[in-house]
């Protein structure tokens, strides 16, 4: 981040006490909720490293729950997140792990939505309230949440990327960053993470899915 805005220095407005352990945790929960997409029935958070060591003292638990409930980092409802989750019928569980993680502020979020569908999101808080989602359902990704983001699971084959790029341009969506992940050639579960300047609407999602049959799943984050 070379070209800092004045509001990177003065700001963000946030619920304390820590930009990494509280504001970042709230953002991780919030992005996870958008990846999960549907109403959540139960969620299990596993905290690693410094999140596990000092999380309770930093309110990391409340911030994660608040994020999953859809609160932004400066929302004071984070303070009563346990009660609000109960009121909404979302069951919450925490594990404070001693296992090693690649990054000190790592969380695994395993959620089950009201349709019984399971989603697993792994992310880290990388400082100053910024975050990185590193895994979705076991696949390595890189999602920062700073731009409108779509995640596409697709069949790895020639032409898929250009198809998606072409349809997005026709929909008036400008691609800011794009990364493609696959395990091996022809992977049926290859992934694309696309950060764009304009957000994608559900209508646009339908059009993109129809015009690019190699897409198996599309998440708007």
């Amino acid at each position: 981040m070379e070209n800092f805005s004045v509001f990177d220095i003065i700001g963000p407005r946030m619920t304390g006490p820590s930009s990494s352990h509280t504001a970042g945790a709230a953002r991780l929960g919030y992005i996870a909720r958008r990846i999960i997409g549907d109403e959540i029935e139960r969620v299990h958070f596993t905290l690693y490293g410094s999140f596990a060591e000092t999380g309770r003292g930093h309110g990391t638990d409340k911030a994660l729950i608040g994020g999953v409930l859809g609160f932004s980092p400066d929302d004071q409802r984070i303070r009563s997140a346990y009660k609000l989750a109960r009121d909404e019928g979302v069951s919450i569980e925490f594990t404070y792990s001693d296992e090693h993680a690649d990054h000190p502020n790592t969380v695994k979020i395993e959620a089950v939505d009201v349709n019984g569908r399971e989603t697993e999101v792994v992310g880290r808080s990388i400082g100053g309230g910024n975050i990185l989602i590193t895994q979705i359902n076991g696949l390595d990704v890189e999602v920062t949440g700073e731009y409108p983001t779509i995640i596409i699971r697709h069949q790895d084959q020639p032409g898929v990327i250009s198809d998606v790029a072409r349809v997005l341009s026709q929909l008036g969506i400008n691609i800011a960053n794009m990364k493609v992940f696959r395990r091996s050639r022809g992977d049926r579960n290859a992934f694309m993470c696309i950060e764009s300047d304009e957000p994608m609407t559900p209508d646009m999602k339908d059009i993109l899915m129809r015009l690019c049959p190699a897409i198996q799943e599309l998440m708007i984050v």
Binding site: I10, G11, G16, P17
Partner: peptide
């Protein structure tokens, strides 16, 4: 103190020095 009690603050430049 407000920050430590999960109150709302403005990081300037960080929460710990707000």
């Amino acid at each position: 103190e407000v920050n430590a009690a999960m109150g709302r603050i403005v990081a300037a430049p960080t929460a710990g020095a707000s």
